[in-house]
Simulated assay, not measured.
Amino acid sequence: MASPLHLLSLSRVIFLLATFFHFIAINSTSSSVQPFCHDKESSALMQFKQSFSIKKSASGDPSAYPKVASWKQPEGEGSNSSSSSDCCSWDGITCHGDTGHVIGLDLSNSRLYGSINSSSSLFHLVHLRRLNLADNDFNHSQIPPAVGLLSRLTHLNLSFSAFDGQIPLEISQLNKIVSLDLSENPLLKLQKPGLATLVQNLTDLKELHLSEVNISSVVPEFLAGFSSLTCLRLRDCGLHGAFPADIFKLPNLQFLNVAINPDLSGYFPEFHRRSPLKSLKLGITSFSGQLPNSIGNLDSLNYLDVQGPIPESVSQLVNIQMFHIAGNNLTGRVKLDVFTMTNLFDLALSYNRLTFLSSTNYTKTTLPTLYHLELASCNLTKFPDFLRYQDG
């Protein structure tokens, strides 16, 4: 028969276990419940929605649809008990799991049409971390300086959205930004402030997209010190001066595009095997010198658009998929070995005076299957032999 002391100890153990499992159950339940969004933020979102009309032509993406169409106005006090009126459940909205604050707004490809300014209720959403308004039509509005109020932003995408005028200095104060995309807004300009002033404090940048923005400046040397940078796209920006060669050596850079900047000069450095570069686009620039043989070290490269003489070492780029050297005015003989990478499907050689040296050893299994081929104005007198192995 168990002693009273033993029974007391057993009861205490059972009590402690019950308390422990009750604590676990409470915390598990509370952590799985998503808090409702805040009334002020819900109201701000509805005001933002109502400031625009829906226009099919406002978005270029064929899959675009008006995300705000599903948003429903709360009908009074306590209405947040309805999931349909809880803004955390609305299309394009992300809320913080603990606080319920709106931290993400993705209205890309939403067919929004209308103007936006600093009085917009958008800027009441001060907890936003991600804001994506890409592929809408903001009717030549300027980017509102009030964007600087969104000091927690880490991702800002306003691309393809018909913005106009000077990019506001306030963006330079968003020092938590890791991804900034203002590209494909050809009426935007970046002059006062210029490129250097805009990004000098954004030292955590991983992605910078400013293609087709009127920058008309040099590329600042200090960008070569942005060690987190994985993507730099400055195509068709009116860049001039010398491109800092050390940018090629950034340890995490995967995508570099400064094409269609005819006044941008520079040279190619030696490339090492540890380089993570996947895409290198430098066509229609004033880069000089020959592409070094070490280009063959770029094992991850799958897109190459350059100008100047092409070394045979490019045949070592086994992962290359797109290879563009169109418009280089190259002359001389080209061995077909250079273009036998099996993953290659897009080859552009137009506007070069080339003679192809083919081999009788090629078969359909040793040559790539091309889906896109440009040979315009190449001074050809006959089609290259390798075309016989293409399916058409």
Rank of each mutant, 00 (worst) to 15 (best):
L133P: 05
L122Y: 03
N293V: 10
L229R: 01
H101P: 05
A2V: 08
G327E: 07
N201Q: 14
N80C: 11
V338D: 13
D106R: 12
G238A: 06
V258G: 05
D385N: 11
N175T: 15
D91G: 00
L10S: 13
R233D: 11
A58P: 08
N302H: 15
G104A: 04
Y362R: 14
S82A: 07
S83E: 10
F243R: 09
A348P: 03
S179D: 13
K335L: 04
N261S: 09
A58F: 00
Q200M: 10
P309M: 01
S350D: 15
N293I: 07
I284R: 09
I177D: 04
F23E: 10
A146Q: 06
S119R: 03
G283P: 00
P251F: 09
L280H: 03
E41V: 01
G308Q: 02
H209A: 09
P66E: 07
L282C: 07
L202A: 05
K72S: 05
R333N: 15
S57H: 13
V126F: 08
S11Y: 14
Y303G: 01
K67M: 05
N214E: 12
L291A: 10
S313I: 06
R129G: 10
S228Y: 06
P244I: 07
S83K: 15
N379I: 01
P145G: 09
H22E: 08
G78W: 11
A162F: 12
R12P: 00
S53T: 15
S43C: 04
P311F: 05
N261W: 05
A242H: 12
S286V: 02
S315F: 03
V68A: 14
K278F: 01
K364C: 06
H38A: 08
A162L: 02
Y303K: 13
F21K: 02
G327W: 10
T365W: 09
D246S: 14
H22C: 14
S79Q: 03
R130G: 07
N175W: 00
G97Q: 11
N175R: 14
V334M: 15
L357Y: 03
E207Q: 06
A224L: 06
N328G: 15
L174P: 07
Q73P: 01
T203E: 01
P251L: 08
R273I: 07
P74R: 07
E270F: 02
L223Q: 08
G238E: 04
E207K: 01
Y351D: 14
S31G: 10
T331A: 03
S51R: 11
R233F: 02
R274N: 15
S51Q: 10
E77D: 07
Q191K: 15
F163I: 06
S300M: 04
S9M: 13
I284W: 04
A2W: 11
G308S: 08
S3H: 05
D305Q: 13
S300E: 14
A259S: 15
P276S: 02
G289D: 06
G289H: 07
F20Q: 04
F138K: 05
V13T: 14
P35Q: 08
P74V: 06
L317S: 05
H38I: 14
L133K: 03
K249F: 01
